[in-house]
Each structure stands twice: as C-alpha cells, then as structure tokens.
Amino acid sequence: MKPALRRAVLLGPATLWIGLFLVLPLTLMAYVSTLERGPSGGVLWDRHSADAYLQFLFERDLMDRLVLNTDYLHIFARSILLAGVTTLLTLAVGFPTALWMAFQSERLRLVLVFVVTVPFWTNILVRNYAWMLILRTGGTLDWLLTALHLPGPPLEILYTPWATGIGLTYSFLPYMILPIFVSLEKIDRRLIEAAYDLGADRWRVLARVILPLTAPGLAGGAILVFIPGLGAFISPELLGGAKSMMIGGLIQQQFGQSRNWPFGAALAFVLLAMVLLALWAHALRYRRERADE
C-alpha cells in the first residue's frame, strides 16, 4: 500500500468521526452565535446580528447607549483563576505522587496505577455529592474532628470557594498524575545514574535531569486539568453553593433559563478562543525551546 493511502485509511475513522460529530456541530454553533435570538428561545435562522458578541462587553443603558459591562469579564477572570489554582494544586500533589510511583518495582507500579484510577470509576456527580457529605456542617469531617477531640467550631467549608477547590482538585488529580507518571516511567534510568556519577546531588538530578525530561508529561497534565477546569460547572454549583458564577454555569444558563442561544454560543466561542490561544502560545514556546537546543 502506498504510504499516503495507508495514512488515509488509518487516520480516516478518527478524523471523520471528529469532523462529522464535533467540527460540524461547532460550525453550526458558530453560525448560531451570529444569529438573532428567537422571541421565546431558539434562534431566527435568517436574521443575523452581532448582539451576542456585543453583549459580552457592553450593555444598553436607559438611553439605549452602549456602556461597558464588566459582569462577564468578572466571571471569566474568576474561572481562569480557579482553573489555574486547581492546576497548581494538582501539580503540587501529582508530581511527587507520580515521582514516587515511577520508581517502584514494576509489579507495584501496575498496582499503583490501578489504585489511582479506581476512584474515577465512580461518577463525577456522585463524587461531588460524597464531598458534600464529608464537608457539610455536621458531616463526616466534622464528626471525625470531634471524635479525635480536636477543638473548634463546627466546620463551615461547604458552599465556599474552598469546597470548590477541593472538589476540582479531587476531580482532576489523576489527569495530572497519569501523564507525569508515563513521562517519568519512560526516562532512561542510565541518564539519572550518569548524573549521579558526575557528582550531582539528589535535588540537582531532580531539577536538571528529571524535571526537563518530564516536561511533556507536566504540560500534558496541566492541559488536561486546566481546560476542563475552565468549563467546570458541577463542582462550583454543588460544592460552591452557586454563589459565584463560572463560565460553565454562565453558558449553561444561556441555553437553559435565559433562553439566549446566540449569546451562549458566543460565550462558548470566546472560551474556546482563549483555550486555543493558550495552547498556541504553549506550542510556540515549546518549538522555540527545541530550536534553541
């Protein structure tokens, strides 16, 4: 078989599938974002308007003038911050964990991967509910602290940003651990031995050899955590008490209670554009680094 044909056959299923059932729907959505919203939800298919994008930054005041409205910027900024914090937290916990896992015997490594994945066989909603049971006032954690005779007032963690942070970190931790673990596992052990032989101490080995070689895993993990973190809306709603809106909740609201499909679609594209921009910047840096070597 010719290489080109072979490539086409092998790549066909995945790309056609994604093209047909994701790219095409997204195109449709992009089209919807340029339409006028219908009087009772839905859209008017033949009436175009830029309202949806204008609404992101501006609102009409009583005199029908466009004035700046920072509500949506606030919500976007909060989501970015929360996703960033979640990424850092999962990184702080995930890297040492993966490091420890990667240097165990092969049999134990397999078991550990198994152990880390098991919690994710429960449903994400259920996991969030479980955290609600644990964190609520008079919940499991409260009960545990009392049983240990630790003094203090009843816990007020549930329905705060702390609870959202715990929920998100919990939800995405394996997505951080696994890619780092795969990267670490692939490192040629002789490189590390050589570094020690050349007189490097443990921390230098970590900083100069292991960390750079794990960079793809770290980057992969960060992307796997940051991006779904941006769109998360189950944890903020259930654990955060829905007191502060996130992008995911805002978009859902547009397609739900607000019945404003064009604005929802426009918000979705602003979010998508941000994500793509971040990825592109990351790719550029990565390429330049490789060119520098």
Partner: peptide, 27 residues
C-alpha cells in the same frame, strides 16, 4: 492539523460540545 483535530474534543468544553452536538442532531 490532524494532531490538532484529535486533540480538539479535549479542548472543547463539554457543555459547549454537548449543546452543539444536540443542535446538530436535531437539525
């Protein structure tokens, strides 16, 4: 481009993808 396409579902927030696919199916 192919690599980007394969990564696309990760990048598209579920809520966006879910709604887009629903509109598409219905249409």
């Amino acid at each position: 481009a192919m690599e980007a396409l394969l990564g696309l579902p990760l990048v598209v927030p579920e809520i966006v993808g879910g709604i887009a696919i629903l509109m598409f199916f219905v249409l």
